[in-house]
Each structure stands twice: as structure tokens, then as C-alpha cells.
């Protein structure tokens, strides 16, 4: 006699990651930390952008950085050279950071009481889109040296991000880069995505980026006050 039977399961494949991400989110909330998950293809300039941003924001906020790469601690060392705490996570064969890695890395950072945490994900426009880390939002860094149609080629990542930072804008004239078309494509996959143009090399556009961060931070503090009644 066959004992074959059907079992109803109805569980999310990424349920475990999502539960750990919810734990991270609760810890970030308890510490009053605003967390950004930076994603991009390799070479878009995430680390250069972060080096400038943390150096210029570190007097205003406690800041920590979690760096994700398959190998090497080069990126964390570049961040530490600015005087900001950074933890390197090597994913080995893995193509993305997951919530467990971020939770463990957060344990090793100094207390960021009311500050900012930047998570630099592995350079990859595919896999990191699926893995919630507990961040407030994803920021996708796109550079003018990439094709304008990248938002259409990798729609999941642009759909999952709240802000698109268009980096290397200083190179736009020599590249015949079409800014309007890029924004139009990004908004096809995500009508609500915000867009800022920056150059990590020259510093152009960073004051608008900092204003964006401060606005998010003020909103978080407002929500904390509301929660406290």
C-alpha cells in the first residue's frame, strides 16, 4: 500500500531571510539607525561615492559601513581610511549579501546610536534585489558609462530601489549620455523612483544627496517621536 500523501505548505522560499531581515530592522529601529542598501553593477562607483559621502557626513552623524564583496577587504580599508568604521563581509562564492551576514556584521560595528549605516552590496544587479537586509530602502547606483537601457535590462533592481543615483555625471558630455532617456526607462519599471545626478570624482550633486539623506533621517526621527507618543 502506498503511503503517498500531499502536504500543504504555503511558505515563502525566502521566508527565513525575510524573518532575519525583520530582526535586523527591529534592531536598527531600536538603535534609531537609518540604513541604506547600496546596489549596482560592478564598477558603477559605489565605493568611491561612499568614501566621499562618509568623509563629508561623519561630523554630522555616527556612521558605519558594511562592505560586501566576494573577496578582498580592499573596500573596507578604503572606508576606514576616512576614519569611519567599516566591516568587510566576504560572500565567497555568493553573489549577494543576506540578512544573516548583515546581522553578524552589525554586531561587530560600534554602536551607531541615531546615526547612519550604509551597506554596500556585492556589485550585481540581479541577485541582491531578492534579499531584504532590513534596510530602510535600497539606493541603486547607476553610472553614465553604462547603457541608458540598463533599467529595462535589470528591472527587478530598479523596481526595488527608492533612489537612483546617476554617478560619473562629469563624464556625461564625452559619452553622449542621454539622461532623460535613462530616467524615462527607470520610471517605466518604477514610476516612484527618485533620481539624483552625482560625480564621486568632482563632488558635483552631493549636497542634494545629503539633503535627501537628511530628509529621510528627519522622517525617521519624526516617526520615532510619534511612536513614543
Amino acid at each position: 500500500m502506498s503511503s503517498e500523501r500531499i502536504i500543504q505548505v504555503e511558505r515563502d522560499i525566502l521566508g527565513k531571510n525575510d524573518r532575519l531581515a525583520a530582526d535586523n530592522r527591529a534592531r536598527f529601529r531600536a538603535d534609531g539607525v537609518l540604513v541604506f542598501n547600496l546596489v549596482s553593477s560592478p564598477g558603477a562607483g559605489k565605493t568611491s561615492l561612499l568614501v566621499r559621502a562618509v568623509a563629508e557626513l561623519k561630523d554630522s552623524f555616527p556612521i558605519g559601513v558594511i562592505e560586501g564583496d566576494q573577496q578582498t577587504s580592499n573596500d573596507a580599508e578604503r572606508i576606514r581610511a576616512t576614519g569611519v568604521a567599516a566591516i568587510q563581509v566576504n560572500t565567497g562564492k555568493g553573489c549577494h549579501l543576506d540578512a544573516a551576514m548583515v546581522g553578524e556584521a552589525y554586531d561587530r560595528l560600534p554602536w551607531l546610536n541615531g546615526g547612519l549605516l550604509f551597506i554596500e552590496n556585492v556589485g550585481n544587479l540581479v541577485c541582491p534585489a531578492a534579499f531584504d537586509l532590513g534596510e530602510a530602502c535600497k539606493i541603486v547606483v547607476f553610472s553614465t558609462t553604462e547603457g541608458e537601457d540598463k533599467p529595462l535590462k535589470y528591472p527587478d533592481m530598479f523596481a526595488a530601489s527608492s533612489l537612483m543615483l546617476i554617478n560619473k555625471i562629469d563624464l556625461a558630455p564625452v559619452l553622449d549620455f542621454d539622461l532623460d532617456r535613462t530616467i524615462e526607462y527607470a520610471r517605466r519599471v518604477n514610476p516612484g523612483i527618485e533620481v539624483l545626478t552625482v560625480s564621486a570624482r568632482t563632488g558635483e550633486g552631493f549636497s542634494a544627496f545629503y539633503a535627501w539623506i537628511r530628509k529621510r533621517w528627519a522622517k525617521l526621527k519624526q516617526a520615532e517621536r510619534t511612536a513614543q507618543g
Binding site: S3, E4, R5, I6, E10, R11, D12, L14, A130, A159
Partner: peptide
């Protein structure tokens, strides 16, 4: 037009198992 808000089709779930 492109003013679309995705409402479904993002699922990745284990529905059921056929077991012995």
C-alpha cells in the same frame, strides 16, 4: 502608459509536497 504599480506575480513559495 507606464504608470503601473505591480500588485501580483512576485511570489516565490513552496505550495505543497507529495511525500511518502
Amino acid at each position: 502608459g507606464y504608470h503601473l504599480q505591480v500588485t501580483g506575480g512576485e511570489e516565490m513559495r513552496v505550495r505543497e509536497l507529495e511525500v511518502d
